[in-house]
């Protein structure tokens, strides 16, 4: 993979040409060099006011164009959001791991759980926001040229595929965390049932078919209390589950949205650069042909109109002459 940098010899050549230009440009050269340096320092490139003279009148125009169009400045926002999401996911992963550690005082845990919840919500919000920004990129109120449109499409594609990758990552992290959590709570429950000697057995019986349990055991009030507790527990668990499901469905719908934005598949014909380039070229050529045709038709129409006009004039003249002849 050899390469050769021809920039130095090019700069030499260019310098030679500059020296050959009229003297009053010399100052502008140095002017340019400072600008060059500014550029290297990462400043926003301005159009250098060098060269002076005849081409000066085009500059105001250039200066306007050299700034990013407003709609494209949003790309920066998207990038910032994307990196934010990335760091949020990292953070969340840290929390998850911590939360899954077995020894943990209850207070810490609830704190942690809260922060997990907050981060998750924040991340989801960011996802939504970024998604909206991408979707509405260059949407309303901006006039886009043909090239801009192409560019917009490409930007949307690249950014949304990034977002998509992130969202898959996020969801994977979440899912693995949830399954781990579930496993742990199951094992806790196991521990609890094993540890809680007789009463738990009773509980189990009561759980399986509570009617029988009610008839068999005479200590009604206690039993009833237990059943009520049990039912209450069950209800809260169910409630939680339902909420979970609703949340999952929401997640799902968002995921579908993400997919819908990203239609182009890796490695397909639509993903070939040369294919797309040729397609554009063909379209341009087709457009040219159509324009030419239109032009021809237009021209034809004009000549026809001319002929018609001449004819009409002739007829009028003839009629006129005829009348004149008739009169005299």
């Amino acid at each position: 993979m050899a390469t050769r940098d021809r920039t130095p010899s090019y700069i030499l050549l260019k310098a030679e040409y500059k020296n050959r230009r009229p003297v009053n440009h010399k100052q502008s050269t140095s002017n340019y060099e400072t600008l060059e340096e500014e550029n290297r320092n990462g400043m926003i490139p301005l159009v250098p006011i060098n060269n002076g003279g005849s081409s000066n009148d085009t500059y105001p125009n250039l200066q306007q164009l050299n700034v990013l169009p407003a709609w494209m400045q949003k790309i920066n926002d998207i990038d910032v959001n994307l990196s934010k999401i990335q760091s949020q996911i990292e953070k969340l992963k840290g929390y998850h791991d911590k939360n899954l550690l077995p020894d943990m005082s209850l207070e810490d845990q609830s704190d942690l759980e809260r922060s997990i919840e907050i981060t998750t919500a924040e991340t989801t919000r960011l996802f939504h926001k970024t998604h909206d920004t991408i979707k509405n990129l260059g949407g309303k109120g901006t006039i886009l040229t043909q090239e801009d449109l192409k560019m917009k499409k490409n930007i949307q594609q690249s950014k949304s595929s990034k977002l998509q990758a992130l969202s898959v990552l996020f969801r994977q992290k979440q899912r693995s965390y949830l399954t781990a959590l579930q496993k742990r709570s199951n094992s806790f429950a196991d521990l609890y049932t094993k540890g809680g000697v007789d009463s738990s057995h009773l509980n189990d019986d009561g759980d399986d078919d509570s009617d029988d349990g009610m008839k068999e055991i005479f200590d009604f009030t206690d039993e009833q209390k237990q059943i009520v507790d049990l039912m209450e527990n069950e209800i809260t668990a169910r409630d939680k589950e339902i909420r979970n499901i609703i949340r999952s469905i929401n997640d799902l719908s968002q995921l579908f949205q993400d997919i819908s934005l990203l239609v182009i598949q890796q490695g397909s014909l639509l993903d070939r650069i040369d294919y797309n380039l040729n397609e554009t070229e063909d379209m341009i050529i087709d457009g040219g042909i159509i324009i030419e045709k239109t032009n021809e038709i237009h021209k034809e129409y004009r000549t026809r109109l001319c002929i018609l006009m001449v004819l009409v004039a002739l007829v009028v003249a003839m009629v006129f002459i005829f009348i004149l002849k008739m009169v005299f």
Binding site: K150, N154, Q157, S158, K162, I264, R272, I273, N276
Partner: peptide, 13 residues
Amino acid sequence: TQSEILQKEVFLF
């Protein structure tokens, strides 16, 4: 592929 290159901040071909 085009999508790979798009990832490198090339937005127009």
